[in-house]
Structures are given as structure tokens and as C-alpha cells.
Design a binder for these strands. Structure first.
Length: 226
DNA sequence: TGAATAGGGAGACGTA
DNA sequence: CTACGTCTCCCTATTC
């Protein structure tokens, strides 16, 4: 029941260090159509059962992500369900952790619909190239995702990526438009890490954000070209 | 040779 | 207010 869910949610809160992000995701996965929330706000989990059990939620999230099956699941979501939810808008407010570029890129790499813009060439090693023809569109999606009025270009993204070289999060490899996630970064962003450690909010952020921002905006752009 | 891509200094901006 | 992280702007260098 949702009462049990609240208790579990509290336990979760106790178990994990409090963070604003976590609060958002807690709210998100607390989503329970017959109790609260607006069902038109989310691309909900592809389940016929109401999601009111933490274990179910966690397993669903993990399976969902693991199988890289975002595309298929998204097909069950109508356009009007891909509206920016208030919760996510709060994410960008004061005190909310900013989404970082490499996180966004990883999200995109996990979204088959983005393959014409960016895709893995070696997922294990974390190597990915931008697609020359569509890198500008990816930049535009990144701009929209940040809700920025400034124009974003591949050049600017590439400059940010080069900065990741210093922190060893992403390095440039000697191949055109191609970069590589560091092992540590991949671990941070990977579901296996999430299942064992405190990355839960991060991964929820990944699929949640993918559904609601990237995908919706993606369709806004020229879908067939990208 | 020109366009595309890569590199990097400097500074803007938001957050802790 | 300060320090810091993360871009963003813009110019130069290199590669295709």
C-alpha cells in the first residue's frame, strides 16, 4: 500500500544521505495515480500495476535501464504525456544539483532514438563519437535540456568536454569527434553501480530525464534527420 | 586552400 | 563575500 510505501520511503531517506535530488526522485517514484500526482505529468513506468512498492520500483528501474529498452517503452507513451513535470522543473531551481554535460551525453547514449546524433562505438570502454551531421542538433537538445536561452554549439560542448580531461571524467581520443568516458565515470553512471550504492537518484534521473526532456524535445526537432 | 575540428585562456555564472 | 566547479566565449592551431 502507499502507507507502507511512505514508511519504506522514510527508511530510504534514513538509509541514504539526504539530498534535494533524492527528494525529487522520491516524489517521482512515489507516483501513484490513485492517490496523488497528475497522471498526465509523467512518462510512467511501463507497468500495469500501480507502483507502490519500493522493491518493485527499484527493480523496475534497474531492469528498465539495464535492458537499454527505453525506446520500446517510450513508444507506449503518448506525446501529451511527455510534458515537463513540475518535479523536474524544480530540479533546476535553487539548491538543485545541475545536470552535467557528461551525464546528459550518457543519457543520450543510452537512448536508441539519439543514435543518429551520438552513439557508442565501444560501450564497455565508454568510447563514443558524435555524428558529424547531427552534432548540432544534440547541442540544441542540450541547450533545451538546460532551459537556456543561449545558443549551444558542438564547439562549446567540445570545449566543456575538454575540461573533463583535466578531471579525467572524459578524455579526447585521437579519432574525429570521438571521446571516451573514464572507467570511474562509467561506473558512476552505470546501473550496476547504482544497484549496489547510492547512485539511485542518478539513475532515476537518467531514465526519467530521458523520457521527459530529451525525447520530447527530440520530437520537437526534425525527428527524421536526427 | 577552406572548412571542420581541436586546443586553451579568460571570464561569466551559479552554488556551497 | 569568497572559493570553486562548470561551463561559455572567442581566438588560434591543426587536421581533413
Amino acid at each position: 500500500t502507499c502507507v507502507e510505501q511512505d514508511k519504506l520511503g522514510q527508511a530510504f531517506e534514513d538509509a541514504f544521505e539526504y539530498s534535494p535530488d533524492y527528494k525529487n526522485h522520491l516524489a517521482l517514484i512515489n507516483y501513484c495515480p490513485h492517490v496523488k500526482g497528475n497522471s498526465s505529468c509523467y512518462g510512467v513506468l511501463p507497468t500495469e500495476e500501480p507502483v507502490c512498492n519500493w522493491r518493485t520500483v527499484i527493480n523496475s528501474a534497474a531492469d528498465f535501464y539495464f535492458e537499454g529498452n527505453i525506446h520500446q517503452s517510450l513508444q507506449n507513451i503518448t506525446e501529451n504525456q511527455l510534458v515537463q513535470p513540475t518535479i523536474l522543473q524544480q530540479k533546476w531551481g535553487k539548491g538543485r544539483k545541475k545536470l552535467r554535460l557528461f551525464e546528459y551525453l550518457h543519457e543520450s547514449l543510452c537512448n536508441p532514438e539519439m543514435a543518429p546524433c551520438i552513439q557508442w562505438v565501444d560501450k564497455i570502454k565508454g568510447i563514443f563519437p558524435f555524428v558529424s551531421k547531427n552534432k548540432g542538433k544534440l547541442a540544441e537538445l542540450w541547450r533545451k535540456r538546460k532551459d537556456s536561452w543561449k545558443t549551444m554549439t558542438y564547439q562549446k560542448m567540445a570545449r566543456a568536454l575538454r575540461n573533463y580531461g583535466r578531471s579525467e571524467e572524459i578524455t579526447k581520443i585521437r579519432r574525429k569527434l570521438t571521446y571516451q568516458f573514464s572507467e570511474a565515470t562509467l561506473q558512476r553512471l552505470s546501473p550496476s553501480y547504482f544497484l549496489g550504492k547510492e547512485i539511485f537518484p542518478q539513475v532515476l534521473n537518467n531514465w526519467n530525464a530521458n523520457y521527459n526532456y530529451t525525447y520530447a524535445n527530440y520530437h520537437e526537432l526534425n525527428h527524421h534527420d536526427c
